[in-house]
């Protein structure tokens, strides 16, 4: 009746894998995974920037950035996005304090800044169309619209996501899952502001400079 059990008597059954997988395990890996998604998104923008870098001076005898871009308008756009970044930051700080009402308030303000940004961008595009500068006018304009509207689309979907999460928080409160989602959106939102730095520097400021 010999049992070949090497564990000393009285100890718990040996654990060969980590059984404690519920709840909090995913948070660290979610953040890392979302970060990796952002990095891949970064590569998408890099290819669009590279395309713009190559084609950005091919006007095909059409309008050039100097004729088209309205820098004060772009400065306002930049301010909208920067304000939305800091208000989202405040929302996250209120989330840490589990203050649902204030979190929702800052999220709403962030959303409004986001809407203002997208609205101004659409107005700019409409204006450009009226100026005779649609995407098909020249390689410069094709690459310009592709780059800038890809960013604008990201912001639009960010707003959609923000509204969805606000509904979620309203319904279920600041539960762990909602906090995790809000943190992902936080990274997404700040990341878009970061990309916009590249856009206003390379496209607008450098375009007008040449």
């Amino acid at each position: 009746m010999m049992h070949t059990d090497t564990a000393p008597p009285g100890t718990a059954a040996p654990v060969f894998f980590v059984t404690d997988e519920e709840g909090h395990h995913s948070e660290g890996s979610t953040m890392l995974g979302f970060w990796l998604y952002l990095m891949s998104d970064c590569l998408i923008f890099a290819t669009l920037f590279a395309t713009y870098g190559v084609l950005g001076r091919s006007y095909a005898a059409g309008p050039s950035p100097k004729d088209l871009f309205d820098l004060p308008g772009i400065a306002v756009n930049t301010a909208m996005l920067l304000f939305s970044s800091i208000t989202y930051g405040f929302a996250m700080l209120e989330m840490d304090k589990d203050d649902k009402r204030k979190t929702q308030m800052w999220l709403a303000i962030t959303g409004l800044f986001g809407v203002a940004f997208v609205t101004l961008e659409i107005r700019e595009f409409v204006h450009l169309f009226h100026e005779g500068a649609p995407p098909w006018r020249s390689a410069f304009l094709s690459s310009f619209y592709t780059l800038v509207s890809t960013h604008g689309l990201h912001v639009s979907f960010g707003i959609l996501w923000l509204v969805t999460l606000m509904v979620q928080v309203q319904r279920y409160g600041l539960v762990a899952a909602n906090k995790r989602r809000l943190m992902c959106l936080s990274m997404f939102w700040h990341f878009l502001d970061l990309i916009w730095i590249g856009v206003f520097t390379v496209v607008y400021l450098m375009g007008v400079l040449e």
């Binding site: 948070e27 700080l93 936080s186």
Partner: peptide, 22 residues
């Protein structure tokens, strides 16, 4: 859950620096 996302101070520092750098 995921405590550290800065403080009011770090956000404001980042914001002021960003404004200057813009």
């Amino acid at each position: 859950t995921e405590g550290g996302h800065g403080s009011v101070k770090s956000y404001l520092t980042g914001f002021v620096l960003s404004v200057i750098l813009t």
